[in-house]
Design a protein around this nucleic acid. Structure first.
Lengths: 337, 337
DNA sequence: CGCATGTTTGACATCGTTGTCGCACCGGGC
DNA sequence: GCCCGGTGCGACAACGATGTCAAACATGCG
């Protein structure tokens, strides 16, 4: 009866007539092994189809070669892009990505972090579901390198990658006011407890106040509340709303669908700029003006910062990287008509 | 000097005055431990903030509680949805998902599989980059449970979840022919080596032949070849093309952009049905008719089948699950005008 | 009371790898 | 001839958990 177990390093060593440790050295590209033995051991590994057991390796070396990544929503294109870039960056650094999603709930997020920590991840890239309570630091071991992106966590000592939320929001709002004579602009968004939301609202306010206009924010707790009925009530019953500044992708989608359901036409009845650009924004009628976040870059930079920490090439204060956005002017804000 | 290592089960056992094994039993909800000790050990775990090391657990028990997932493209909404569902299903079964992407390249795919196998994944959910060569079975250990989805692998003994590619394609094509009098319909797609592509083409052919029309397929090796210039040449130089059947999401996006660049209007100059529906398809002008794949369900069912294997409740022949699609008729095919 | 039966418990080996340490060997400088 | 430092290699323990097996203990029955 053959033992059908996968071959281990012990098998390799026996077959090659060397000690276990020497085989291990070859596996780790250690230099102190003679040319001849290295060659021989390599051959045996090849022949046996040897595959190192990363679990065992990680157990002993205290490095799992895995990083965790948590986002609120896996099917939001903003996050998919970030994940894609993060995965590539991780692979380039010889790590795998364990992916999970919080659904935007802090308690789910905590549970997922717990799971990841138990798996001994070497680091964590996270777009937090909440910036207020210090719910991350209580779950995350103090010595685990963490990079937050999109949403920063207050009073924490993590690296963070964001965009110029406030200034970009100001600029988008100002554009509609200054170029297209919008007077009554509303900001529509969800999850007001998020810092990104607050910042974007602040930028919106900046622009309104500078123009001497009264800001009017329409924030709901959860996106599901952005129904056509709600829109009708908020935007049209009292009347006179010129323009909408929508605070993120999900809201934009729902606003667009809602307006269509109400028979209102964007670009004519009402102007719109979306925070978050996406693949087909230019194909809509009217094409959608948007603040484009460099989503892939956000994921890539966050992961890059993480690996800098892991390699020890950075071990000082938390760093903050603020990326620029691009205001993509298309038709929905009134341009190109 | 305090030892700042994270507490281990040995620490817990010592603190609780029991043996290592008894603590282990409590961790694994073994029944044969007295009420009193269980309680005590639980308390100690709580107090010390004990977190089981999943690497060590996995090493000994030969189960990593992780599954691998590989898709060609992380930012394709079809795959994001599938990933989302898979991740939820995995979590419900106490597993994590290690995600990676092949970019559609068989050699990258092999390398990623190798990485995952070394990490001792318990199972693999994969949308293969290639169905022809038997490149999967040569890399995947014979005893690793695998479920393929979207793209089946020929002559392999894996469970598979797909949709009714051929019939759905036939139906979509027939719709344009029968309801809207299309005579010259072309099928546009990429990566003709894929089975899904071939099946969809076959369905398209079925419809054309049944109507006594000559099929005309425009397949390119890679999506990047779907430029406006190429479209112009294929569709308009010889002239007379009525309608397009686009074989997947990426192609649809590029065809839409290309047609716009060429100044051709979908729904008027040329009809279009897309294989793959997406979030904003209904918001386009004209709204896009599409074959909607139940993408979340594909991911969920694939993962569900995998866990059935893992739990041993299924250990027979490979199973094949074929899910229905929905032909969503909007304006681009000529409906509702 | 003795013995069979079943429950609780712990000592020890083990999973597959890497870390520690020490030994043997080599050539070179005194 | 002797000591030295560096290289090449291996024996052994360790990482943190689980599996094995047998001992200790409680219980029920004749």
């Amino acid at each position: 009866m053959k033992k059908s177990h996968a071959p281990t390093l012990v098998d390799v060593a026996r077959e090659a007539g060397v000690s276990l440790k020497t085989a291990s050295r070859v596996l780790n590209h250690s230099v102190n092994v003679s040319e001849k033995k290295t060659e021989k051991i390599r051959k045996v590994m090849e022949r046996l189809g040897y595959r190192p057991n990363e679990l065992a390796r990680g157990l002993k070396s205290r490095k799992s070669a895995a990083i965790g990544m948590i986002v609120p929503n896996l099917s939001d294109p903003f996050f998919s892009s970030a994940i894609k870039a993060a995965q590539e960056e991780a692979r380039a650094n010889g790590h795998v990505v364990i992916l999970s999603s919080s659904g935007g709930y802090a308690d789910v997020e905590r549970r997922e972090i717990e799971t990841l920590v138990r798996r001994q991840i070497d680091g964590l890239v996270i777009a937090p579901a909440d910036s207020h309570e210090n719910h991350l630091s209580s779950t995350i071991p103090a010595d685990l390198p963490v990079v937050t992106f999109d949403e920063p966590v207050q009073s924490a000592r993590y690296d963070v990658v964001t965009v110029t939320n406030r200034e970009s929001a100001r600029q988008a709002t100002a554009h509609m006011i200054e170029r297209h004579n919008a007077r009554s602009v509303v900001a529509i968004g969800a999850r007001p407890h998020l810092y990104t939301c607050a910042e974007r609202v602040a930028g919106y306010r900046d622009a309104m106040q500078k123009a001497g206009l009264a800001p009017r924010t329409c924030l709901v707790q959860h996106e599901s509340q952005l129904t056509p009925e709600w829109l009708e009530k908020e935007l049209f019953v009292s009347g006179g709303v010129d323009a909408i500044f929508s605070l993120n992708w999900v809201c934009t989608i729902l606003v667009l669908k809602g307006l269509r359901a109400l028979g209102r036409q964007v670009g004519r009845d009402i102007l719109l700029i979306s925070f978050d650009d996406f693949d087909l924004a230019e194909m809509l009628t009217p094409s959608l003006s948007a603040v484009r976040q460099p989503s892939e870059r956000l994921g890539a930079e966050a992961t890059r910062l993480l690996f800098e920490r892991l390699k020890g090439s950075a071990d000082g204060e938390p760093r903050s990287l603020v990326l620029p956005t691009e205001l993509v002017l298309r038709e929905s804000c009134g341009c190109r008509h």
